[in-house]
Structure formats: structure tokens, C-alpha cells
Design a protein around this nucleic acid. Structure first.
Length: 991
DNA sequence: GTGCTGGCCTAC
DNA sequence: TAAGGTAGGCCAGCAC
């Protein structure tokens, strides 16, 4: 949705982009909607003042705008309306507000500023006014007014619209029409309108030829290939697969190859292609922050002037803009914003970063994780070589590039991204594009605004002021230990939403200060000392929204049960997910200090109620389930966090534990106000409670068989641990909890430690990743991943980790006492330079504490001794680096291959010392055998990589750092080289 | 060594 | 301009 002023009539026109059932793109020019905001009316305002008020305001605004081509009448008119401020309870009385209508929404900020700072108005003098709806995105308000949500169906009946003559088309859409807003019918996504439009989706990927060792820069390095896949939403396969190549490229079965000898021509051809395809959605991997920006800058460098017209509007250039997005949830991120009117840029990387917590977000890692499919990864330094080879090497690259364009489509399909995002847009009402480029708040604002409009409530533009923090939830002090009896867990379902509904907590019901003029039964005093009127006096807007969301979720879940069509089933599942997330984000919205409408009275009341509820639950359980009441044991709440309690009833079997849990849940629920509900969810058996927010257990929902092993907060689920630790802890827990085999677990741990100290652990297992959350300057202390990122930036600024990236590193051996942050190194650099790993670090700082934490409750004080003091830790290890430290000053001497004694100058060129000479032949044979074994291993790994890349006849060019095979292949390669050198030393002898 | 702080990541 | 919340474990670095 976009807005402009028609030149002839001086009325605002809104552009609405859409797709019809046949998949044709449509641009509708909408008339009859006038932008507006509200402000508080001055006391005693009269109808007759309005004309003067309008003039004065218009004058003040025009002075402020100081724009030559500013319209003469920015303020079109002012009306007096009876409304209510949403913030606070006002005895259900409406008051007067001014509705200020203006010519274009872009003037809203100026008008807002003038009203708030105040302006001179004859009758009333200099005065400021509180404004309403003036800081809410205009698109959101427009849609709310017209009852349009993101991705819903809009019907435009025959006869109410006029099809434009092709010569009058402003856009590249297939159909362009004019109509009045009163003639469009917006359908909620229900019944037949649940279906999803057949959107055209273009996925693309580019390759650039960077210089050696430097990350490509658009000002210098050419774009050499652009691969494209076009698919209709709902269909299984792309109907267009093609690739634009610079220079020739051998044919590829199933894909169209279009070669150009000049880069500028290729770019222009691609740009034409995009306009021809006219996609609704443009996707790919990291296209928003890399590919699109690179193409735009490259086209600018090459002066391909017609390139950047990639949007739907003919005369609007696509440009990139840097925006900084910051939130506590997502950290700080520098993003690019790209305008492409009428199309949505749906970058899959952004989707994954938002929705999934992964150790690595490279397309390789993600493809493997979700599709169980490896993808070859070509290092940017190799790309130039392939480009400068022949049509076959370029074809090689093209195949790779095509796959990178294809995989995002596969992932979108597998993860149902489009469906889920569309459902989120429908549920919250925001446009699809907002979901990736904006935060959580806008979704709540959109829903709140819609509800407010129904009840003639106005949302004030609040000044942000950072208040104090408020108290959160209770975490019950855990009774730590290993429990070999079933532990029943009870949860409040949708705790915070149900508290808000139960106690009618809302902006509209908030009483400021103690209510003297109300009867006690008319209001609620919350445990945090705030006051809200009861629903009998006024039903809150937030409780109503939440109630609708929860009910809609129930409906969606019910419909899922009845749905036979697998596609519609997925849509419904996406919907119930969106509904749950929406309900949960309302509380966060009221607590967001830097937000559109913060209300700490609400959020602190919510958490305060929550705290009393978990306390009461614990108390009720322990009071009731006692031997003196006829139960077999005294029950004990051993842990609980926010909305859950873990209960040891004492019984030794699941059937009884579940029955008691069920009963307790029902009993306790009955003591709370509706719709607050405590539910029995599961039993853990056995249960290992390590600390607050740290536990593991076998998760049972039915007594027969466990559903899964559930680990919370421990190393297995934390991304800042090496896979070595995560896997080790995970296997040990499995052995302890599932197999109930402590001895097996101990032996496994010992074996792993021994393997580590003997350098038998693959480097891919030792990679730790941490996110770079700030710029270098902002960090107070030194840290491994930060220091490494700085080091890498010096090596190659382009490919070094950036703000918001996860930095992978391993800890290499260094001199004694060297700080850890000095020993962090890039895993690939470690491989290439054959740096030794600091295995002691991994044992002492990575493995030992987590291991002891999980074994301690079972082995008690023996744990440390058994695990860390045994013979398995005595293995000799290399702890001094070859470079750095003292090693740098000692000259390497050749040693005898048999007895390791240093060779004398005379023997220098021999393989063995004179002592061992008789054994030389035997040694040589042995060395040859090793060589053969290594070669065999290398060949097997190589073939495996060839298979992965889909061809047994071509070189392996993959350097996928997320693939263990890559590291193994590299290591064997290195070993081969060294072995070859050794064998060379036998070379002087004539056999 | 001890205690504190900053940083990261998770639970809910 | 835009940006959901608090509780809390645990580690490395740093001051003393």
C-alpha cells in the first residue's frame, strides 16, 4: 500500500497491490480516503472555531515544512468528534477530540510536532495539544479503517471499477484499475477465503569474482552469474530455471543458460527478466543484505542506468538504505532496506534468524539441518579461477549457483514459511513485508488499533521515558538432585493472557491512584498495588483481544482435527501458531519501555498475579497431598518456573503419578478465576534437576512409553558450546536416563576424554560459536570471539564476521599462561596452518564442569575422582604451539625416524641415524603402508564429497565449514603431504 | 584466590 | 525512526 497525490485533482490516491485467483498481478488505485490524526480539543471548543483553527494550523505547518512544492492546503479540514482516550478509565464518558484531516500522510509527523509543541491560535492563544494515532504507521491505520489485513482476499465487484487504458499504466502489473474505497469488499480469511493466492515467487543467487583473499566489492569485482528459479505458491516445482552467465557456459540439462560477453548487458538482461516475471515475492539467501545491494551498486559502477527499476512502479528506482534495527531479543543488527514497491522481499536468512535458534546460519548448515542434504560450498577465492577457466568450469559454477537459488525454495516449502507468515499477517493484520522488517510491537499495535476503532477509542502518541524496571516471575528454589521416581508437572496454560482476561487488566480499565469514588466490588486491587475496574463496569480491550485470540486458536485446533486436505491443515496449523504467539506478545508489549503504548501498571500486575499464583499452587499441593490426609506420601514441590510446578508425589509408578497430577490440576484450577487453568501436562521419570532453569528428564505423556528426552538449559541445548561437549553430555544423559547405565556413561565419558587428549577428536567437534553483539569499541573486556573477529578483519575485511554474526572458533595451544582470548582461532586457519589444539583447555574449561554437574547427583563426591583423575587423563599431549612462544626461537632439527634422536650434520639428509640404519628398509615399508592407508582414506572421503556434489567426474571444490567431512578431508590431505615428505627422506638410498 | 562484572544464552 | 519482558546460570576477565 502506497500513497501519492493525483496531480490533477489534488486528492490523495492509494495504491494497493494484489494478485487474483489466476495469478495475475493487479494494482488498484483507491480514491476516497483522507489521511488524518486526532488531537485533544481545547476546552470549550465551538464548531465556529474550526475554520480559524484550520487556518492557523495550516499556516504553522507550512512554515515548518519550508518546502517549495508543499501544497497550499496541507490541513484539509478539522472536525469535532466524541471519542475516548484508550489510556485509563474515564467513567465510561466520552470527550471531545479534533479530527484533523490532511492532504498526504507524509505530513503527519510535522502536524504532530506543531500540535504538541504548540502554535498560536487567535481565540485560545499559544497552546499545545496531545495527539492521537499520530505515531502509528499510516499503512496500518489505513488497513484497519478498511478492515483489510495482510494477505486477505479483497473482492472488487464488477462494475465498480474502471480498467485503465494500457497507456495510462503507472506500473508493470498485468491489470490496473481505479475505484473508490467504499466499493471494495474485504473478506476475513474464513470459509472459502482461507485459500492462499498463487503468488509468483522468484528465488535468485549471484556469484561474484573476487580478487584473491579479498571479499568481493561491488565497486571492483564483477558479477559473473545470476541463477533464478520461479515458482507459483502452492505448486511443487519451479516453472522457470535459468542462469545468466558472464562469458560462455556449457549447457545444463533442465536449465536455460543465457550467456553474455559484457557484464553490463548481463545485468540489464537480468533486470528485464525480473520485470518480465513480475514476481510478487523475491526470495533467496541473504539477498537483502548482500545480493540485491551488490547488484544495485555494481549496476551503478557500470552505469547501467536502467537496471535499478525492479519494483512494480515504472518510474520508481530501487535503492538500498542502511537501517539499524535494535532490540533486546534480536540484538543489534545493521540491515539494508530495499524499496521495491509492489513486491515483498522475503529473505530466507532473515526468516531463519528470527524463527530458529541454530548454531550456524550458513545455507549449508541450514540445508543440512532441515533437508538432511549437504550442499557444496565454494570458497570465494576459487570462484574466480572457475570463471577464468573454460565453459566447463563456468558450467561447474553455474550448477552450484543454481542450487543456491533452488535451496531457499525447498526450505520455504519444507518449513512452510510463506503459509505461516501469511497466517501471521492475517491474524495480526499487518502486511507481509512488515513481519520480516519490523518488530513484535507493530503486530500488537495493529490488533489494538482495530479493536480501539470499534469502540471509538483513541491511542495517544506517548513520549517515551525510560522508567524503572518491574519485577518478573518467580522461580521456585529447586531441590536439586536425581529423582528415580515420577515427577508430575503442572502448567498454567497461557498464563499471562489468562491473567489479563481474568482480572480485566487493560489500558481502558486502569485507575490512576486509589479509587475513592468506586465501590470495592467495582474494582480489583492487584498484588502490585495497582487498580483496575472490573469487567462489569467496563470490559477491557486487551482482555477482549486475548479472549478472541485464544478462542480462535481453539477453533483452529478443532478445525485441524476435522481437516482432511493436507494443505489446509498446514494453513490452520500456521494459524494456531500465529494466534498463540500473538497472545503471548501482548504482555510484552505493555511492558516494552521503549514502545508505542507502554503500561507498567499492567505488566507488573500481570507478573505479580503470576507470582502469587505459583506460590499458592505450591502451597495447595503440599497442604493437600499429605499422609495425614490419607495419601501414601507427603508431596513436595521440588521446582517451578513462572507458570509450572514440578511435584514429587512420592509414588513410584507413572500411572499413579499421572492420576494424582490430573486430580491436583483440576482441584487447583477450581480455586482460580476463569479462564485461568492449571493443566497436568507430563511426568518426568527419571528427573535430573541440576539448578534453576537447568534440568533433564524422560518426558512421559502416557505411562507406556516416554515421548522424548527433554533437556532444558544444559549444554546440549546451548549454542555457545562445542559439539564435543553437547554430544558428550547428550550421550551421557541418554545412558543415565534411558539406559540407566551409569557405568556405561562413565566409560563413554572417559573414552571421550582420552580421545580428546590423544588428538583423536575431529576439529569440527571442537568449534565453539558466539554471537558478535556489539561493535569492537563497545566491549568492555576482552573476549575470544571478539578478538578473533578483529584478527580476521585484518586478514580479510570483507569475509570477517560482522555485527550480529556468529563467530566460530577453536582454542589452539599457546604459551603457558596465555589468555584464552589470545588462543582463539578460525577453524579453517587452524587446518590450513596445522595449528595444534589446546586439548587441555577443552578438558578443563569445556568438558569437566558440565560433566561433573550431571554426574554429581548420581555419583556424589566420587564424580570428580572417577571422571577426571583416572589414567585416561594422563595421555601425553602437545601443549606448546609450533608458532609463538618459545617455539619460534628454536630451530627445528631433523630427527631419526626410528629412535627420534637428533641427526648429526653428516646424517642430515638421511631418514635414520647410523644406529638405526639396519632397520631402514623395514621402516620404509612401514611408511609406505601408512601412506597407502592415508591415500585410501583420502580417496574415500573425496568420493564421498563427489557424490555429495552430484558428480564423480569432477574436482571437489567444496569448502563447507559446517561439514565434518570437509575437516577430515583437509586433515588427511595434510597428513599425506607430511608423509610424502618423510618418504622423500628415504629417497637417497638406492633400493 | 576471591568476589565482582560483563557477556552470552537460555527458560518461561 | 524503531526497538516485546524479567530471571538466572555460568564462564572469562579483571581488580584487588
Amino acid at each position: 500500500m502506497k500513497e501519492s497525490l493525483s496531480s490533477a485533482q489534488k486528492v490523495p490516491i492509494f495504491r494497493l497491490y494484489g494478485v487474483n485467483e489466476g495469478g495475475n498481478s493487479i494494482l488498484a488505485h483507491l480514491y476516497g480516503y483522507v489521511p488524518y490524526i486526532y488531537c485533544s480539543a481545547p476546552n470549550g471548543v465551538k464548531q465556529t472555531d474550526l475554520h480559524k483553527f484550520t487556518e492557523s494550523l495550516n499556516h504553522a505547518v507550512r512554515n515548518e515544512v519550508k518546502q517549495k512544492d508543499a501544497p497550499e492546503h496541507i490541513i484539509l479540514g478539522i472536525k469535532i468528534e466524541s471519542k475516548e482516550n484508550i489510556y485509563g478509565f474515564h467513567g465510561n464518558k466520552k470527550s471531545l477530540f479534533l479530527r484533523i484531516e490532511l492532504v498526504l500522510s507524509k505530513f503527519i509527523p510535522v502536524v504532530k510536532r506543531m500540535l504538541e509543541t504548540g502554535f498560536e491560535f487567535p481565540t485560545y492563544g499559544m497552546q499545545g495539544y496531545q495527539t492521537f494515532e499520530s505515531n502509528i504507521d499510516f499503512e496500518i491505520r489505513f488497513m484497519a479503517d478498511l478492515h483489510i489485513t495482510g494477505c486477505n482476499w479483497i473482492e472488487i465487484p464488477a462494475g465498480v471499477y474502471k480498467i485503465r487504458d494500457k497507456s495510462e499504466y503507472m506500473s508493470r502489473c498485468q491489470l490496473e484499475i481505479d475505484l473508490n474505497i467504499k466499493d471494495l469488499i474485504s473478506h476475513p480469511a474464513e470459509g472459502e477465503w482461507i485459500k492462499i493466492a498463487p503468488l509468483r515467487m522468484l528465488s535468485f543467487d549471484i556469484e561474484c569474482a573476487g580478487r584473491k583473499g579479498v571479499f568481493p566489492e561491488a565497486e571492483k569485482d564483477p558479477v559473473i552469474q545470476i541463477a533464478n528459479m520461479v515458482q507459483r505458491q502452492g505448486e511443487k516445482d519451479p516453472f522457470i530455471r535459468n542462469i545468466f552467465t558472464l562469458n560462455t557456459c556449457a549447457p545444463i540439462v533442465g536449465s536455460q543458460v543465457m550467456s553474455h560477453m559484457k557484464e553490463g548487458e548481463m545485468l540489464m538482461a537480468w533486470s528485464n527478466f525480473v520485470r518480465e516475471v513480475d514476481p510478487d515475492i523475491i526470495t533467496g539467501y541473504n539477498i537483502q543484505n548482500f545480493d540485491i545491494a551488490y547488484l544495485l551498486n555494481r549496476a551503478k559502477t557500470l552505469k547501467v542506468d536502467l537496471f535499478p527499476f525492479l519494483g512494480r512502479l515504472k518510474n520508481i528506482k530501487t535503492t538500498e538504505k542502511k537501517v539499524v534495527l535494535q532490540s533486546k531479543q534480536m540484538g543489534r543488527r545493521e540491515n539494508k532496506s530495499i524499496n521495491m514497491e509492489g513486491r515483498v522481499i522475503f529473505d530466507l536468512l532473515l526468516v531463519l534468524v528470527r524463527d530458529y535458534k541454530l548454531r550456524s546460519y550458513t545455507l549449508n548448515a541450514v540445508s543440512f539441518y532441515f533437508l538432511q542434504e549437504q550442499k557444496e560450498d565454494v570458497h570465494h577465492s576459487i570462484i574466480s579461477d572457475l570463471q577464468h577457466g573454460n565453459e566447463q568450469t563456468r558450467r561447474r559454477l553455474a550448477v552450484y549457483c543454481l542450487k543456491d537459488a533452488y535451496l531457499p525454495l525447498r526450505l520455504i516449502d519444507k518449513l512452510m514459511c510463506i503459509i505461516n507468515y501469511m497466517e501471521m499477517a492475517r491474524v495480526t493484520g499487518v502486511p507481509l513485508g512488515y513481519l520480516l522488517n519490523r518488530g513484535q510491537q507493530i503486530k500488537v499495535v495493529s490488533q489494538l488499533l482495530r479493536k480501539a476503532k470499534e469502540q471509538e477509542l483513541l491511542i495517544p502518541a506517548m513520549k517515551i521515558d525510560v522508567n524503572d524496571e518491574f519485577e518478573g516471575a518467580t522461580v521456585i528454589e529447586p531441590i536439586k538432585g536425581y529423582y528415580d521416581v515420577p515427577i508430575s508437572t503442572l502448567d498454567f496454560s497461557s498464563l499471562y493472557p489468562s491473567i489479563m482476561i481474568a482480572h480485566n487488566l487493560c489500558y481502558t480499565t486502569l485507575l490512576r491512584g486509589r479509587p475513592n469514588d468506586l465501590k470495592p466490588e467495582e474494582y480489583t486491587a492487584t498484588p502490585s498495588g495497582n487498580f483496575f475496574v472490573k469487567s462489569e463496569l467496563r470490559m477491557g480491550v486487551l482482555p477482549e483481544i486475548l479472549d478472541n485470540l485464544l478462542k480462535a486458536r481453539k477453533r483452529a485446533k478443532q478445525m485441524m482435527k476435522e481437516e482432511k486436505d493436507p494443505f489446509k491443515y498446514k494453513v490452520l496449523d500456521g494459524r494456531q501458531l500465529a494466534l498463540k504467539m500473538s497472545a503471548n506478545s501482548v504482555y510484552g508489549f505493555t511492558g516494552a519501555q521503549v514502545g508505542k503504548l507502554p503500561c507498567l501498571e499492567i505488566s507488573q500486575s500481570v507478573t505479580a498475579f503470576g507470582r502469587t499464583m505459583i506460590e499458592k499452587t505450591k502451597q495447595l499441593v503440599e497442604e493437600r497431598y499429605q499422609m495425614k490426609n490419607g495419601y501414601k506420601f507427603d508431596a513436595k514441590v521440588i521446582y517451578g518456573d513462572t507458570d509450572s510446578v514440578m511435584i514429587k508425589f512420592g509414588v513410584d509408578n507413572l500411572v499413579d503419578a499421572m492420576k494424582l497430577g490430573q486430580e491436583a490440576a483440576e482441584f487447583i484450577s477450581s480455586t482460580f478465576v476463569k479462564p485461568i487453568k492449571l493443566e497436568f501436562e507430563k511426568c518426568y521419570f527419571p528427573y535430573l534437576l541440576i539448578n534453576k532453569k537447568r534440568y533433564a528428564g524422560l518426558y512421559f505423556t502416557k505411562p507406556e512409553k516416554y515421548d522424548k528426552m527433554d533437556c532444558k538449559g544444559i549444554e546440549t541445548v546451548r549454542r555457545d558450546n562445542s559439539p564435543l561437549v553437547a554430544n558428550l553430555i547428550s550421550v551421557c544423559l541418554q545412558k543415565l536416563l534411558i539406559d540407566r547405565d551409569p557405568t556405561g556413561a562413565i566409560n563413554y565419558a572417559k573414552q571421550t576424554i582420552s580421545d580428546l587428549l590423544c588428538n583423536r577428536i575431529d576439529i569440527s567437534q571442537l568449534v565453539i560459536t558466539k554471537e558478535l553483539t556489539k561493535t569492537d569499541k563497545e566491549y568492555a573486556g576482552k573476549q575470544a570471539h571478539v578478538e578473533l573477529a578483529n584478527k580476521m578483519r585484518k586478514r580479510d575485511p570483507g569475509s570477517a564476521p560482522q555485527l550480529g554474526d556468529r563467530v566460530p572458533f577453536v582454542i589452539v595451544a599457546g604459551s603457558k599462561g596465555q589468555a584464552t582470548y589470545e588462543k582463539a582461532e578460525d577453524p579453517v586457519f587452524v587446518l590450513e596452518h596445522n595449528l595444534p589444539i589446546d586439548t587441555r583447555y577443552y578438558l578443563e574449561n569445556q568438558i569437566s564442569k558440565p560433566l561433573i554437574r550431571i554426574f554429581e547427583p548420581i555419583l556424589h563426591e566420587r564424580a570428580e575422582f572417577v571422571l577426571l583423575k583416572g589414567e585416561h587423563t594422563l595421555t601425553k599431549t602437545v601443549t606448546i604451539s609450533k608458532i609463538g612462544g618459545l617455539a619460534a626461537f628454536t630451530k627445528k632439527k631433523e630427527t631419526c625416524l626410528s629412535c627420534k634422536s637428533i641427526l648429526s650434520d653428516k646424517e642430515l639428509n638421511d631418514a635414520v641415524c647410523s644406529h638405526c640404519k639396519p632397520k631402514e628398509s623395514e621402516l620404509y615399508q612401514k611408511q609406505i603402508c601408512t601412506m597407502a592407508a592415508l591415500e585410501d582414506k583420502f580417496n574415500r572421503l573425496w568420493t564421498q564429497c563427489q557424490r555429495c556434489q552430484g558428480s564423480l567426474h569432477e574436482d571437489v571444490i567444496c569448502t563447507n565449514q559446517d561439514c565434518p567431512i570437509f575437516y577430515m578431508r583437509k586433515k588427511v590431505q595434510k597428513d599425506l603431504q607430511e608423509n610424502d615428505k618423510l618418504i622423500g627422506r628415504f629417497g637417497k638410498i638406492n633400493w
